[in-house]
Amino acid sequence: MAGTGGKNINLKLKVWKQNGPNDKGQFLNYEAKNISTEMSFLEMLDVMNEDLINQGENPVEFDHDCREGICGTCSLVINGQAHGPDRGTTTCQLHMRRFKDGDTIAIEPFRAKAFPVIKDLVVDRSAFDRVIQSGGYVSTNAGNAPDANSILIGKEVADEAFNAAACIGCGACVAACKNASASLFVSAKISHLALLPQGAAEREKRARNMVAQMDEEAFGACTNTGACSAACPKEISLENIALMNRDFAKGSAKNRS
């Protein structure tokens, strides 16, 4: 399993173990031995789990899927930092060369009331799905794809919309926020639709509905501290939160009911 250029290290792990949503949970100590520094963090956990299975013990449950930083499935708070110490990185892209031989690493789930623990490090992020269901779409029938030149969109606007659309919905913003606020996620979803003509028609109503659902899910409020954006693997800008605040206020003022 050792890589070609890396060396092997041994680590002590403090991992959150929780049998189910209603279990209290606790930290257990594990060892990850002979870990190549070229492995990703998740591969390190795979090796640790293999050892546990070989010893007849229960492996540690964690979420993962694409392992190339685009699906938003992996999570983990590593030494207090969502997706680990690097910027613009998901846990699956974090490499073990970031750690030293003999290091102790604390691994916790994303912690929020809206993200209940299912088991160990796996949390239920379906609150995000419900926020999307509340307005993260264009409800008008836009017909067939129009000719590209018939709807002109400035490059800057297209870039801004694309940057917001880069959100992979991993939930690191919630995990990093001291208030477990989902503002960065919700605002990214509001922005990427609001900035383009197809989504602009419903932007204020969308903001109202999605914010209502966000509050319903028991996320906290935004304090403009910026930990979310620093922890975001796609480095979504705080500017989106200001856009959401604007659209929400306008939507509330214009709302007829």
Binding site: K14, G25, F27, V77, N79, G80, Q81, A82, P85, R87, A106, E108, R111, A112, K113, A114, A176, C177, K178, N179, A180, S181, A218, F219, G220, A221, T223, T225, A227, A230, A231
Partner: peptide, 20 residues
């Protein structure tokens, strides 16, 4: 509301850019 949004605290606090 903010306090209720995270009933179980983190054991380790973040340092650096990702901290509050």
């Amino acid at each position: 509301k903010n306090k209720a949004a995270r009933p179980v605290k983190y054991a380790v606090n973040a340092e650096g850019e990702k901290s509050t």
